[in-house]
Design a protein around this nucleic acid. Structure first.
Length: 104
DNA sequence: CCACTGACGCGTA
DNA sequence: ATACGCGCCAGTG
């Protein structure tokens, strides 16, 4: 299956200053949220893939530990205009981007 | 070649 | 309210 490829395509569509979730992408692709995490893990190194814009359903930067440094992910997100409070995105739902929007 | 592991989320007890 | 199990793909030992 090209599940990973599908995930990459979606993640690349996430606009700057926006974030998405594992569950939303998984639902859109019709797969399990786990696959999203695994795919993103593989995506690390692919500069074309903004893996830092994907967080869990609580808006928490669960994947930050996979970056070069624990603060890197938060740093990038803040750099894109987001506000992080205690590893959690503030006004998360206001910055939430749903894959369904890519249909538009 | 077989088995384990790794960025999650939801339903059920 | 908290705890546990299942779903799912690819890479590595």
């Amino acid at each position: 299956m090209q599940s990973y490829e599908e995930v990459f395509e979606i993640v690349k569509l996430i606009p700057e200053g926006k974030v998405s979730t594992y569950g939303a992408i998984a639902k859109y692709l019709g797969t399990s949220p786990r696959v999203i995490g695994w795919a993103l893990n593989s995506s690390l190194g692919n500069k074309k893939i903004p893996a830092h814009r994907v967080v869990n359903r609580h808006g928490i930067l669960t994947g930050k530990i996979h970056f070069a440094t624990a603060d890197l992910m938060q740093k990038i997100l803040e750099s894109e205009g987001l506000k992080i409070e205690n590893d959690q995105i503030e006004n998360f739902k206001s910055h939430f981007w749903d894959p369904s929007l890519s249909l538009l």
